[in-house]
Structure formats: structure tokens, C-alpha cells
């Protein structure tokens, strides 16, 4: 694999949400509670690749997606696009970033304005970003509908007239209308039935090749992530515990959490049953992130070092990075 300059570089992203203190808490002089959603996430996304982001709910994967789409302002850390830091000061550059990085959401029923027809939705996007002269807008809408395989008469319908899968296609068309370079897909197909999921995933893969898109595929369905991604990042409590080549990560996960996560995914083969849970305990609350390695309480290999020292994400080989003190030992064992 030749080295390419990353299109998106993220370094040390932190995002904490303070919870509102109730009057009762204030009287009891309780400390302000803070949801630690992201605790220093760094990653690079290469042009044209799909980076899968997996983790359990509450691990911060959706928060990360929203930070990249600039729906949240990060507390600490930098986002660089094509080597240029995206800073809040430069309004013009921000606008351009907002066009180049588009996001698609999970819930097909709330991501479209119920009062706008598909034509209105697409025309608005085209007009606001001056993508086409006014007289070409309808032609472009027809093109976009073709692109996402919706019939032409879909243009003048309202969202409620479509099925979930069709709505996600509309959302894809809306994102594509401003000709972005990066798509952030936050659980794009999770709400869809399996047979419809496959249609949308195929469409996404096809569009990526055709339009040379870079995709961040955030999902909890490991099989899907494996299928669409070149590389995969596993997130646990707001930090990346492992990132690397998709096939390698799925075939031989190195972090104990990645291992447990993969083992828990139910296989379609009834002969590959396991008889005991792959991992005990539950994800700790992001209000109360454990010291040291966040995973140590559930980890079968945890040592005293894990309780005090936070492991850093480090390269184990050319294909992947792991954040575990005992990665080498586990590999040779």
C-alpha cells in the first residue's frame, strides 16, 4: 500500500458534556457530573477509503461522527482537512468544509423535513451552495434521483410516502447534491430490514467507486462494517482501542475488547455456537470512566499496570495500532 496524504486528520479530540446540576445536587454540594464522550481520539482517513467505526452504544462513535460533521464543537484537539486546520475563525473555510463533509443519519423517519418534497429538499441544497445555475436545478435533481435509483416521480412526493430504505436514499441524494468528498454515515442502515439494508449498502459502495468518495461508516453491526470498510477503528468509552486493516482486524483482533466484541457477534453458522458469554460485565457509564485502561475492569488479562496507566495507541505492525499494555504478550501467547 502506497502512502497517501490523509484527507481528514483528527488529533486528540476531547469532548465532554457537563450535565446540568439540579438544585438538589447543588444543595448536597455534589460535584458537577460530566459525560466524557470523547477522550483523545486521533485518526487519519485516506482519500477514497472507507473507515469503519465500531463500538457499543455510548462508546462515543456517534459523537465522533457528529464532531467530524461539525455538529458539535470539540473541547480540545484539532481536525485537519487536506492538511489545513479547520478552525472556527475562518467562516469561508468552514462553509467549504461543511460542503465537503456530509453526514447521513440513522433514523429515516426524522432525518427528512416532513413538510418538504424531495424536489424542495434537493433544490434547497443546490441553491444554497450555488451548485448549479437556477435553470439547471431540475435536471440536476433528475440526475441525483437516478444516482440513488429512485424513480423520477419521487421528486414531488413528501417523505411519508416513502419506505425507510427509500428515505435513506433520499438522504444520500441530499448529501450528494453538494458534491462532497467525505461522507459520514452514522448507522445509515441500522434501522432498515436486512433485505433492504443490502440494497442501500450496495448503493453506497457503488457510489463510492463512481464518485471517488471517502466514507466514515459508523455502525454497531460488525458484519456490515467488515464488509464495507478498508480499515476499522474500534472505540471503547471515547478512545480508540484498536485501528487497522479491516480483514486483519476481523481475522485476528489484537485488543482484548476487539476480541470480545467480535466473539459476541452472533454467527450465522449454527455449528459455531459458543456456550459462555464472550465477555462479562457491562460498559461503564461515560460519566465515570475508569482510571488507567478504561477496559481493565472487564478485561481477562488486566494487570496492576492497567489500573493506573492509560495505554497509548501504538503501532504493532504496519497494518494496525493497538492501545493495550499487553498487546505483544497476547500476540505471542
Amino acid at each position: 500500500m502506497t502512502y497517501e496524504a490523509p484527507v481528514l486528520e483528527v488529533e486528540g479530540l476531547h469532548l465532554h458534556f457537563p450535565l446540568k446540576r439540579t438544585l438538589f445536587d447543588a444543595i448536597q454540594r455534589k460535584e458537577k457530573r460530566i459525560v466524557k464522550a470523547l477522550n483523545g481520539v486521533s485518526l487519519e482517513v485516506k482519500r477514497g477509503e472507507t473507515l469503519g467505526i465500531v463500538g457499543e452504544s455510548g462508546c462515543g462513535k456517534s459523537t465522533l461522527a457528529r464532531c467530524l460533521a461539525r455538529l458539535y464543537e470539540v473541547d480540545k484537539g484539532t481536525i485537519r482537512y487536506d492538511g489545513q486546520e479547520v478552525a472556527a475563525k475562518d467562516a469561508g473555510a468552514l462553509r467549504e468544509y461543511n460542503r465537503k463533509v456530509q453526514m447521513m443519519f440513522q433514523d429515516p423517519y426524522s432525518s427528512l423535513n416532513p413538510r418538504m418534497t424531495v424536489r424542495q429538499v434537493l433544490a434547497e441544497a443546490l441553491r444554497v451552495h450555488n451548485m448549479r445555475p437556477l435553470e439547471q436545478i431540475n435536471d440536476r435533481i433528475a440526475e441525483l434521483l437516478d444516482l440513488v435509483r429512485l424513480p423520477q416521480d419521487a421528486a414531488d412526493k413528501l417523505p411519508h410516502e416513502f419506505s425507510g430504505g427509500q428515505r435513506q436514499r433520499i438522504a444520500i441524494a441530499r448529501a450528494l447534491s453538494v458534491e462532497p468528498e467525505v461522507l459520514v454515515a452514522d448507522e445509515l442502515v441500522s434501522a432498515l430490514d436486512v433485505s433492504v439494508q443490502a440494497q442501500v449498502v450496495n448503493l453506497l459502495l457503488e457510489l463510492q467507486d463512481k464518485l471517488d468518495l471517502t466514507i466514515l461508516f459508523v455502525a454497531h453491526d460488525l458484519r456490515l462494517v467488515r464488509h464495507v470498510s478498508h480499515r476499522v477503528a474500534v472505540i471503547y468509552l471515547g478512545t480508540i482501542v484498536e485501528i487497522g486493516d479491516s480483514e486483519q482486524l476481523f481475522n485476528a483482533p489484537k485488543h482484548p475488547y476487539s476480541k470480545a466484541l467480535l466473539a459476541a457477534a452472533p454467527s450465522l453458522d449454527p455449528d459455531k455456537r459458543h456456550t459462555r458469554p464472550s465477555i462479562s460485565g457491562e460498559l461503564p457509564s461515560p460519566l465515570n470512566v475508569p482510571k488507567g485502561c478504561a477496559f481493565h475492569a472487564r478485561c481477562p488479562h488486566a494487570s496492576t499496570q492497567c489500573q493506573s496507566e492509560t495505554p497509548r495507541l501504538r503501532a504493532l505492525d504496519e497494518l494496525g495500532n493497538v492501545a493495550c499494555h499487553h498487546a505483544e504478550a497476547l500476540l505471542s501467547a
Binding site: 455538529l71 462553509r95 433514523d107 426524522s110 432525518s111 441544497a125 444554497v128 451552495h129 438522504a171
Partner: peptide, 14 residues
């Protein structure tokens, strides 16, 4: 505002 279409508008740079 809890609906995603509002977030979608922001992502579109509106």
C-alpha cells in the same frame, strides 16, 4: 430540534 432533519440542515451548511 431533536429530529435529525435539523442536524441535517446544519451539516448542509444552512
Amino acid at each position: 430540534m431533536t429530529s435529525d432533519y435539523a442536524s441535517a440542515g446544519r451539516v448542509m451548511g444552512y
